[in-house]
């Protein structure tokens, strides 16, 4: 009899306790980020869509169409063609199919000239057809990334060239 009453009391007490906990959670701030209105800060080195970088001095693409990235890409989504010999060789067309890309960063790591980067911070790639996601040379060298982005968000006023090279080197070693 005593146990029976104690069980009821205990059960009732535990319900009250758990209700207290849920009540506390009811009044904590929701963690949801209301996406289109508010956006989450991206990690500094978030891997987003690709850009082909440009050499500051010659204002030319750094890519020499060596085909390394196209060969290492696990899903074969890079297509490119080039013209010229040796250091003068340049890509004539360069396409990354973002329908297939899985953002593995391998193409960036393998590139011997730091000619491709994924630190653009652009992740809103929605489109109305599949072709919208196939990016060619013009999109990947678009104005927003001119002249080049070597490090994510270089501090304002800093000399672009020196830290750029250092940052790029670091990235390669880390990989």
């Amino acid at each position: 009899m005593w146990r029976y009453l104690r069980d009821i009391g205990k059960g009732f007490w535990s319900i009250l306790l758990s209700m207290q906990i849920t009540l506390r959670y009811l009044f904590t701030r929701a963690v949801t980020v209301q996406y289109p209105e508010e956006k989450r800060e991206l990690p500094t080195r978030a891997l987003t869509r690709h850009v082909l970088t440009i050499d500051l001095e010659s204002k030319d693409l750094k890519c020499t169409a060596c085909d390394m990235c196209a060969r290492i890409c696990p899903v074969n989504c890079i297509y490119l063609e080039g013209e010229g010999k040796g250091k003068a060789r340049r890509a004539t067309w360069f396409i990354i199919d973002h329908n297939l890309c899985m953002y593995c960063n391998l193409c960036v790591e393998v590139c011997p000239f730091d000619a491709i980067s994924m630190w653009t911070g652009q992740y809103e790639l929605g489109g109305f057809s599949r072709t919208n996601l196939v990016y060619g040379l013009d999109t990947m060298t678009a104005d927003g990334f001119y002249p080049t982005i070597m490090t994510p968000r270089p501090p304002a006023g800093a000399a672009v060239k020196a830290p750029a090279a250092a940052g790029a080197g670091k990235q390669e070693r880390k990989g």
């Binding site: 849920t22 959670y25 009811l26 009044f27 904590t28 701030r29 929701a30 963690v31 949801t32 209301q34």
Partner: peptide
Amino acid sequence: KISAHIQVRFGPM
């Protein structure tokens, strides 16, 4: 709304 806020989210918005 209540269920959402108890689970620390917003519910219909």
